[in-house]
């Protein structure tokens, strides 16, 4: 009997490989970026088939959304074609083959794919699946682990995003408020259809972001995904109607402060739990009932993540696009 999932796996993996090779061989960076978006989408599909819905959601938002967007806004500044220069091709090939072979050797002693008794699935993970319902009482185990059992990693993750924001700001600067000078050239907002669609779409996206933010406990989603979606709405707005109107809504200095605040909110939960007699990020002490303490903690820290992620994404996008607006159109072939 041919397993349906098995066929899907093979097909998706084959597509991934074709896409990857195509990316490696092509020289048109615009096409490559598009393909890399497809690569992200395909891997998201693959994640779904591997039952990793949260990851799929995130990978779709990042791999097929944010990262191609960032690439494109940079391409606008740097030019579309690479000159195709290669360096140490032989050396690289040898290195890659050796590394690959080492990895293949490494897999030989690994537990079989999908083995329910593999160590990975039978040690630490068991507790999460069996006890989180009682200890934390939210259906999405990924959220339980992410926000509570390994909440400190997620704090680190929020800090990483924050670090990237600060790093990009230190490199590209913060555009404070609308600049002097006229409105940039023709915008897509002039197209009636686009405008109408987007005017309906953007509120919907924002609403969806809120849903994802507060529904992470039950289904896939959470602060990060919500933040990305929220940012997407603002970014869409700025793409259609220009940077200045968007920046009037989301003012860069405010965004910067929000990015910092999100991290602070997250950290404060840890501090409060320390002050309440627990360890850092021990939500159980936040309320009389440990389980509702967990709920409270998770909601607040997800909020912190969402705020940091959304403001960081918007900030980073602004930082890139304000540059390309400033550059002359001719430079972006």
């Amino acid at each position: 009997m041919i397993d349906f999932a098995f066929v899907v796996d093979i097909v998706v993996l084959a597509l991934l490989l074709v896409t990857a090779v195509a990316i490696a061989r092509m020289k048109d960076l615009f096409a490559i970026v598009m393909l890399s978006g497809i690569y992200g989408l395909l891997s998201a599909a693959f994640f779904v088939s591997l039952d990793a819905v949260d990851v799929a959601f995130t990978e779709a938002a990042v791999g097929a959304g944010i990262s191609p967007l960032l690439f494109l806004s940079v391409l606008k500044l740097t030019g579309r074609y690479e000159n195709g220069s290669h360096s140490h091709a032989i050396f690289a090939l040898v290195l890659v083959v050796v590394t690959g072979l080492a990895l293949v050797v490494g897999t030989l002693d690994m537990p079989a794919f999908g083995d329910p008794d593999s160590p990975a699935s039978s040690h630490v993970a068991v507790r999460y699946l069996e006890e989180s319902g009682r200890e934390i009482d939210i259906p999405n185990v990924v959220t339980s682990v992410l926000a509570s059992y390994r909440g400190y990693d997620t704090f680190g993750e929020a800090v990483v995003i924050f670090t990237a924001a600060v790093g990009v700001l230190s490199l590209l600067g913060l555009l404070s408020g609308p600049r002097e000078g006229g409105e940039s050239p023709v915008r897509m907002g002039d197209h009636l259809v686009l405008r109408l669609v987007s005017e309906m779409l953007i509120p919907l996206i924002l609403l969806f972001a809120l849903y994802v933010q507060f529904h992470g406990e039950y289904g896939p989603g959470g602060g990060f995904q919500a933040g990305v979606i929220f940012a997407a709405a603002i970014i869409l707005h700025s793409m259609l109607f220009g940077l200045q109107p968007a920046q009037r809504v989301a003012r860069p200095p405010v965004l910067r402060a929000l990015a910092a605040l999100g991290v602070l909110v997250y950290g404060s939960v840890g501090v409060v739990s320390m002050l309440s007699g627990g360890t850092f990020l021990d939500y159980s002490v936040l309320s009389e009932d440990p389980v509702s303490g967990q709920h409270l903690g998770i909601i607040v820290i997800e909020l912190g993540v969402g705020v940091t992620v959304a403001s960081t994404m918007i900030l980073i996008f602004f930082a890139f696009t304000s540059r390309s607006d400033a550059a002359h159109p001719e430079t972006s072939r």
Binding site: A52, D54, V55, T58, E59, V62, G63, I66, S67, L70, F71, V74, A120, S121, V124, A125, Y128, L129, V141, V142, S144, V145, L146, R150, D153, T154, G156, E157, V160, I161, T163, A164, G167, V168, L171, L172, F224, V309, I316, A319, F320
Partner: peptide
């Protein structure tokens, strides 16, 4: 197993953060 999912959620975020900085 939910644990790899959690780890990779974090890793994806790290990845996009690195990418943003690199592009800047």
């Amino acid at each position: 197993n939910p644990l790899p999912h959690v780890l990779i959620l974090t890793a994806i975020v790290v990845g996009i953060a690195t990418l943003a900085l690199a592009l800047a």
